[in-house]
Structure formats: structure tokens, C-alpha cells
Amino acid sequence: MQLSIKGRRRITLRATANHERSIISDLEFRKPAVKIAHWTIFGLLLLGTVLTIGPLLWMVSGALKPSIQIFNTPPVLWPSSPEWINFVKAWQQLNSLRYLANTAALATGAVALQLLVSATAAYALSKLKPIFSNVLLFFFLSTLMVPAIAYLIPQYFTVIHLPIFGISLIGSWWAIWLPEAANAFNIIILKSFFDTLPNELIEAARIDGANAWQIFTRIVLPNSLPALAVVSMFTIFATWKDFLWPLLVLNDPNSLPISPALYQQAIAQNSYQPQNVLLAGFVIATVPPLVLFLIFQRQIMRGVVTTGLKG
């Protein structure tokens, strides 16, 4: 995580090429051999992006095919008469709206709770520094060493019977929000950002009579919007990808987010969804995060770089 702090200071994504040289210098670049190599690599990269974008387009084209063309040899790249009806079917029969709304609501709650939990902790550890804060920081960070999957079972038990409170969270979205809010990466991201806020700013507010809460809400948070945005984005994508945990803790299929809901529709022995309708459902599930990503791509990709978090 220290790495990330260092990274954020040092690394800026190159917006326009050539303001700093890389392996090949500008002078070298004028040589014909280098030019040929450059365009060869360029072509190979283009071919490479066919491998990443191609499958997504294949999914869309499959969703538009009549059942009979879905497994055709040679492959039908684009159906002659696209069956847009498959999207209508997917929207209605797969209850897409409900599951998209569930996912959006889950993501909203997750963002709110994670920001609250991580930002307060990061503020305390960065600026208030109460007694034992170094020890606590270590305890938070040490959870990064513990892969979540290794305590899946006891975590499930905990959700069934929450100690002290003695209640069960099963079936409630809190069963997703609360465990997900224990995210040390967020604390690191925010703490390292708060560390860069000048102490003089906070001291001045204190002299003006502001208490810790006011400083937090009026000075620290408004000045940290980029970091808060990165945390929010990662939270939204993580919620959208969540699969196993919602399947375990949400007993009502109507409250599931889209991934496990689609899984049930694809696998359940009584759902019998034809392949093209399922594909249309997958396209529908992919569009919201895709749009969000295209809008916020700069911030997200910068976030990936600064945190070392791989999405």
C-alpha cells in the first residue's frame, strides 16, 4: 500500500504521447526499420483487441440470432434478420428490470456504507490519530492478507447469527452491505489521500472553532472528491460482479442482484431459457457497468494504477 501512495505522486497516465521518452527515442523512430516494426506491433495490438472486444460483440450477435443459427458452422457473424424480440423476452421473462434495480440499490447502499466506514476510519487514522492508531492501522491492513474466501463459512455463520445482537441477517441486504464494508483497501486509498491534505487547513478550521465532525464534513470530504469517487466506482463494480455471497445469503430470489439471478435462470431445472434469450439477458446485465465505465474511464483507470487494485 505504501507502493500505492508513492505511485499516486509519481505516476500520471500519459495523456498525449511523447512528452517523456520511452524505450524508443523520437530520433530512432524515423528509421524505416523501426517504423515498420512499430506498425507491425500496432497491427498485432489491433488484432489483440479483437480478442477482447470480439467476444462481447459475439455475445450481442448471438442474442439477436434465431435459435437455429446460434450454433452454426461456419459461424454466422451477424444474423440476416436480427431477432430484437429476444431482448424483449429477456427483459420480461428474466425480470431484468427488477434485478437491475436490485443491483443498483445494492450498489448505492454499498457505496454509502463503505464511504461512511472507510472515510471515518481513514480520517481518524490520518488526522485525529487517537491512542493505538498505529496498532489499529496494522489490524485493518492485516485483513488484506486474509483472503475473503478462506473465512466464507464462518462469515456465513456470523450472518446467520450475529453475535451480541443475536439476530439473523439472512434475506436482508444488510447481509451484503455490512460484510462488504469491511474493506481495508478503501481505508488505505482514503487515508493516503487525506495524508496529502495540508494540516494547516485543518488547524485553521479548528482555531475557527470547528469540531472534528465539522472539519470532517466541511474540509476533509469536500477536498477529497477524486479519492471518494475512486472508492465509489470500485464499490459499484464489485457489487455488480458479486456472485456467490448473494446466492448464499439472499433467500428470496426477488431480492437477488443480477449475476446470481441470471445464474438461477440459466441453470435452474425449471427455467429452460433458450440460449439466445439468455445471451440477451447477459447483454442487459453488462450494459450498465459498461456505460459507467465508458463515462468514468479516466478516473477508474487512474484508480487502478494508484491502488494496484485489479478491478
Binding site: 476510519a121 492508531s133 464462518p154 455463520f157 469491511a182 470532517f216
Partner: peptide, 28 residues
């Protein structure tokens, strides 16, 4: 005076991590 605010601000995270990470790890 020096510590109250800091500890209060840490409480949500301590609660969440306590219940959903530290406790499950031991419980496992």
C-alpha cells in the same frame, strides 16, 4: 479530549471489521 473524537470516528470501522472479519477468522 485528545482521543475521544478519534475513537468515535473509528467505531464504525471497528464494528464492521470486528463483526465481519476478525470475529469470523477466529470463529473459523
Amino acid at each position: 479530549r485528545r482521543n475521544t473524537a478519534g475513537i468515535l470516528f473509528l467505531l464504525p470501522a471497528l464494528g464492521i471489521f470486528g463483526f465481519f472479519v476478525w470475529y469470523p477468522v477466529v470463529y473459523g
